[in-house]
Simulated scan of single mutants.
Amino acid sequence: MRDESRWTSTPITEDILRGALELERTEHGVLPHRLPAWARAQCADGQLAMAESQPSGVRLAFRTGATAVELDTLPTRRIYLGIPPRPRAVYDLRIDGRLVDQASAPGGNALIIDMATGAVEHQPGPVGTLRFADLPEGVKDVEIWLPHNETTELVALRANAPVEPVPDRGRRVWLHHGSSISHGSNAASPSTTWPALAAASAGVELVNLGLGGSALLDPFTARTLRDTPADLISVKIGINLVNADLMRLRAFGPAVHGFLDTIREGHPTTPLLVVSPLYCPIHEDTPGPGAFDLDALARGEVRFLATGDPAERAGGKLTLTVIRAELARIVEQRAASDPHLHHLDGRDLYGEADFAELPLPDQLHPDAATHRRIGERFAELVFSGHGPFAARPA
């Protein structure tokens, strides 16, 4: 029987929430954002609004002797008509760094999206409660990783023992920006996206600005990176520029320079890693825009294809091959005067041989096993040995 006298509520504030850049007060509680309000005000794109409000890498982190914890949340699911529905988003419970439980929140809002017409219907729903019980006795560090793929309002946190912030461990902060793969698309759970796995392996604190469909060299994103405290910064550039068919080669080079210039205004000597695109056959030599494969949708499958013409490269259209070469050139040029700037070819994380073994199920995004491989390789190549983020003696 639950002893209500032992249960206490803990306000959800910045001191127990990691990975978010801003908390918005809502009717129900707080909504974590991964872009600040001033940045959100500079772009009305619905894709960006969805991506930044999905709390990839955001987690509640606290120390407690509790054996049971409850979290009230109000998720907002997106349901696309004509596309097989995704399963409910997952919350990961980690204790002293180990994944010990997972759960999904009941209730919540739904956005019903008709992709043929663009019509959106909002269906309000109730707040749901997640309960994690039978936790180990004794004081422990608890993390509840919020869903990486579902907008989540946090309403209340309760436990059957007092909760306090985890003391500062002096860990380095890794700030990462990228596209939907960095965001965590098709990962099994929020703490098993490739950036989360790499961060856990390296013992660093992750701030994940992976923004699905929205890694587009936006100036407000560069200024956000500039203004966010970090010990290590990485930016993964390329795939969204191709599948959005956003710019041509003439604009791409100066845009990359400007993006890096802005980051350097706030982090002049911070190790900064530029990562080029992972291997993706549909866009290696074929420009965008990308699109849903309608034949696959008719079979109830989600797959993507490139709709451009390889001949259009002569007119400056971007492909992944073009972008990789240009990024390598830009980093080599800048590194002559910036010894803390580094480059990593994305195919070293996931290349042609990996695709043969672990193909991209929808031709664009990796599955859970591939997220793990990418995370392990990033940790090995970047955080270990002579990697650009390896810990150096003081």
Rank of each mutant, 00 (worst) to 15 (best):
R78K: 03
R6W: 03
H342G: 12
R223C: 12
I113V: 13
L135Y: 02
N109M: 10
P393E: 09
V120R: 07
L217N: 01
E137D: 07
S384Y: 13
S182Y: 02
R88S: 13
A251L: 12
L48F: 03
L364C: 03
P229K: 03
G203E: 00
T224H: 03
H176N: 06
R303C: 11
A49Y: 06
L197C: 03
L344N: 03
D92S: 09
Y350E: 00
L216C: 14
P268K: 09
L93I: 11
Q47Y: 05
V127M: 06
V382S: 13
V58K: 05
L320R: 01
L260N: 13
A391R: 13
H342E: 13
S104F: 01
I12H: 08
W7F: 14
L349S: 04
H148E: 09
V139R: 15
V142K: 12
A51C: 00
F304Q: 00
A188C: 02
L157E: 14
T221I: 15
A244H: 15
Y350P: 00
G138M: 15
D293T: 14
T26H: 15
A379Q: 01
L318A: 11
L241T: 10
E352W: 03
P281D: 09
A325K: 12
E52M: 10
R324S: 09
D285R: 14
D245H: 14
T269Q: 13
R377E: 07
V302E: 11
V275D: 05
G46K: 06
M247F: 02
W174S: 00
H28L: 12
R392F: 08
V382R: 06
T228P: 07
R158Q: 05
R303I: 11
A41E: 15
I239H: 01
A105N: 10
A311E: 12
Y350F: 07
R171P: 03
P11Y: 11
L246S: 08
G138T: 07
C280M: 14
I144P: 12
I330K: 13
L175Y: 07
V331L: 15
P162L: 01
R18T: 12
L294P: 07
F389E: 00
P339S: 10
T192I: 04
D168L: 04
A353R: 15
L154Y: 07
E332K: 15
L71E: 01
T117Q: 12
A314L: 04
V235N: 09
G125T: 08
F259Q: 08
D285N: 14
S234A: 02
R223V: 15
E153Q: 11
P268F: 04
L344K: 04
D261H: 09
A37S: 06
G138L: 11
G19T: 06
H176Q: 05
H176G: 01
R264F: 04
P393F: 00
D285E: 13
T151W: 10
R40T: 01
T319E: 06
A156M: 08
L31V: 05
A188E: 12
F304K: 02
A255H: 12
G118W: 04
D114T: 04
I282T: 11
L74W: 02
L71A: 00
